[in-house]
């Protein structure tokens, strides 16, 4: 017993070092999957409050840029409305459209089976392998894990950790999540990010006979139940043939500018529960 205590005293520093490193690796291993625990995350209340204060401080510097993005989005929405005017909306729409505009801090627009909630970005990163965005809405505002997040121009990511007043969003600049994507003619493939630059995405292994031009748009699909369909991911900027397997590689420019993200919309799919119930039925039998 005495020798044992002596050994512990002699190698105390080494044991402490090993213990702390093991704790770190357990934390890292927990966070390495999408289903991991949220022991250490920026949706934490303390860091959330600090980021909120900082965001309030630098809020006014970005007002001009924000104005531009809102004007652009308004223009796009006006175009959409004009398109609808030409068709008989009452007859053609499959789901009853309900638009409510409440005067609380959270503006809720109900359209078909999605609820849109606005949120302000209070922290943002583009340089890591997995990039997170912290927003100033949490479970009290109805945000839940797994909801998809879009910006005025395109896809942003998916809510991963939620606390009462904050949430952190895993953006699509991440090697944890691949996005199921489709081209205009219906070719499906997933996009990947090679974590070198925030402004390039790749689509690997496309069939070489596919005719894809520079400037073609790439949209999300509803496969995998993660993202809403037909949200713009990006546009093709370069195509090339991979010499190793003779297949086509696409380089995309994302529609969202992740460096200057200010406001996002969090999408709540109210039909999701029903859809999942239906899909689980055959599995039970």
């Amino acid at each position: 017993m005495r020798n044992f205590i002596l050994i512990i005293r002699r190698f105390f520093n080494l044991i402490l070092f090993a213990g702390l490193e093991i704790i770190c690796f357990i934390l890292i291993a927990h966070s390495h999957t999408l289903q991991g625990d949220d022991i250490v995350s920026s949706a934490n209340t303390v860091s959330g409050i600090v980021y909120k204060k900082q965001s309030d401080l630098v809020y006014y510097m970005g007002l001009g840029r924000m104005n531009d993005s809102l004007i652009n989005e308004n223009m796009r929405l006006r175009k959409l409305i004009d398109q609808y005017r030409t068709v008989d909306t009452l007859k053609d729409l499959p789901v009853k459209r309900l638009v409510t505009n409440t005067d609380t801090a959270v503006h809720i627009v109900k359209y078909a089976d999605y609820i849109y909630r606005t949120a302000r970005v209070i922290n943002n990163s583009v340089e890591n392998v997995n990039n997170y965005i912290t927003i100033n809405r949490g479970s009290k505002d109805g945000i839940a894990r797994g909801m998809s997040v879009i910006s005025g121009t395109g896809l942003v990511g998916r809510v991963e950790y939620v606390t009462a007043h904050f949430a952190s969003v895993l953006s699509i600049l991440s090697n944890k999540q691949q996005v199921s994507a489709k081209l205009k003619d219906g070719t499906f493939k997933s996009t990947v990010w090679d974590y070198e630059r925030p402004d390039i995405f790749m689509m690997r292994d496309m069939p070489p006979e596919e005719k894809i031009k520079k400037g073609d748009s790439v949209f999300t699909t509803s496969f995998g139940n993660t993202f809403p369909p037909d949200v713009l991911i990006g546009t093709v900027i370069k195509t090339e043939i991979n010499k190793k397997n003779g297949k086509q590689q696409l380089y995309l420019r994302p529609a969202t500018n992740f460096r200057s993200l200010q406001y996002v919309y969090v999408l709540d799919n109210i039909m999701d529960v029903e859809k999942k119930q239906l899909e689980e039925q055959p599995a039970k039998k």
């Binding site: 070092f17 934390l27 890292i28 250490v40 997995n130």
Partner: peptide, 24 residues
């Protein structure tokens, strides 16, 4: 070192990577 690393981890959502490097 662990305290400094874990604090930065919390703010950057990197879960232990900074703490691991700083403890070493």
């Amino acid at each position: 070192g662990f305290a400094a690393g874990i604090t930065v981890d919390i703010f950057m959502t990197t879960a232990g990577i900074h703490a691991c490097a700083t403890v070493l």
